[in-house]
Nucleic acid binder design. Structure first.
Lengths: 257, 257
DNA sequence: TCAGTCGTATTGTCGGACCAAAGGATAGAA
DNA sequence: TTCTATCCTTTGGTCCGACAATACGACTGA
């Protein structure tokens, strides 16, 4: 954790800025102001050349930067599409780095630990402050989860959905996004894990315990139920993805080089 | 929150990939493997052209992408410098989008709410599981904070440091990074807030209360002390940055257009 | 040994060109 | 008329060559 705070707030380089910077800002403003409508293609590069009287090089660089920020979605041969930034936009931009971090020693462990931390707080707060609607949503998600016990595929999906309800209780878009982040980033571990109806029963029982504790307004019980739920599931993951799996992964990435 | 999960894990576009993609991956591997040493400049673009037998266009695009991912730091006229990715790297890449989100309605409120949530959990865990070293670190940070009460500048810094100790107790780099994120992103609100020795006294008293509660292994008291601490400080911020300040900010960004 | 100067290498930007693919228009078939 | 296959135009991706500005390194002189 070096000295690189790199505050984007203040321009640290008073000297030469790229000539694409002002263009980036202008297009960004046009997107934010709606002058460039959401989900519509960007003007052609040649049009942009005329509009900003810049070379195609600069235009392309500007568009590329916008794409890296997630304000436009640029598929290889297609016209870039305007994407008004949302909380999920941030996810895409960190995605590639997170993938790298997860491959490093203890990466997944750290991420999973943070997830446990967050969900502990979530169930605690749910037990303390969930309103009628929240409880109903939890009950509904639990019922759907129960109905899917036979089909491991469905169970996994409804499992994720149940946890998602917890993340939506604070009515804070950051948490909703966080849930997507956890499921996306930990997906390669959870989804490929060996699944079985027996496992589903165990996990469903955990969900039920969590729900019950919330219903009874018992934050400590809810937290404990969640911790045992996640840690046991995690232990199962760890034994599924042992050193052998990790070695195979490394082999795969090495082959890519 | 649309349907765009956009899992980076699987290549969604089996058709045309950019010709810079393989180059990006190779350079990335070279950085990760240490073949391109950390904190050293990247080879010149012409060298890279020869190495990958590609045109300067694709080389430049590759380097730009690497820069957007934070694996190289590219100042305008300088040679890009290799930066082995760390947790803080992720911060830089989200930075620009976060700045946009914060300007939207309720952006800062959501972020602040999440911070309160996190720190509540942190002080709870600290009260339950902080070891001798953690306590000592807290005590030290508190003492430094106390000594700085007269100087609002110093107090602000030591205030941040005190909270930082809490984030480091879990020994999880994600939390340490999260602290940097909160302080960076909320800095324009905290730092420009009106400061005074009286305020410092109040905040120090809050810190002391938190520390005391942790020392007494009382998670509920610690959590409550933290909540009152942050919310009162936040109220003070909100009255400092009222609608007038917000309007001024918008005016500023409009002027940029 | 250090400071200033000069030349060279490198990056940023430009213009033009071509290719391949996407998108739209058009003609022909059902 | 409607659908489909084909043609043509547009557009993004890539390459090449060139030039200006400047960062860097060497060289010179004190």
């Amino acid at each position: 954790m070096g000295q690189s705070h790199h505050s984007q707030l203040a321009e640290a380089h008073p000297s030469g800025g790229r000539s694409s910077d002002p263009i980036i800002e202008q297009i960004q403003q046009q997107i934010l102001s709606g002058r460039l409508p959401n989900n519509t293609p960007l003007p052609s590069e040649r049009d942009l050349m005329a509009q900003f009287s810049a070379s195609r090089t600069v235009i392309r660089e500007a568009v590329a930067t916008l794409a890296s920020r997630g304000l436009v979605e640029a598929r290889p041969r297609y016209r870039p599409i305007v994407r008004k930034p949302g909380y999920d936009t941030a996810l895409n931009s960190v995605g590639s780095i997170v993938q790298l971090m997860l491959k490093q020693q203890g990466g997944v462990e750290s991420l999973f630990q943070s997830r446990v931390f967050v969900e502990r707080g979530l169930v605690r707060d749910a037990a303390l402050a969930a309103d009628r609607g929240d409880i109903a949503a939890l009950k509904e998600a639990l019922a759907v989860n129960a109905a899917a016990r036979k089909d491991s595929e469905d169970f996994f999906r409804t499992d994720v959905a149940f946890h998602g309800v917890l993340y939506r209780i604070p009515r804070n878009p950051i948490f909703a996004t966080l849930h997507i982040a956890y499921t996306d980033w930990l997906a390669p571990h959870w989804s490929q894990m060996e699944r079985s109806p027996e496992r589903n029963e165990i996990n469903y029982a955990s969900h039920l315990a969590i729900y019950t504790a919330i219903l009874e307004r018992d934050p400590d019980a809810a937290e404990e139920a969640l911790v045992t739920h996640l840690t046991t599931a995690w232990e199962h993951v760890r034994e599924t993805f042992g050193p052998k799996w990790r070695a195979a992964q490394e082999e795969k990435t090495d082959g890519k080089l």
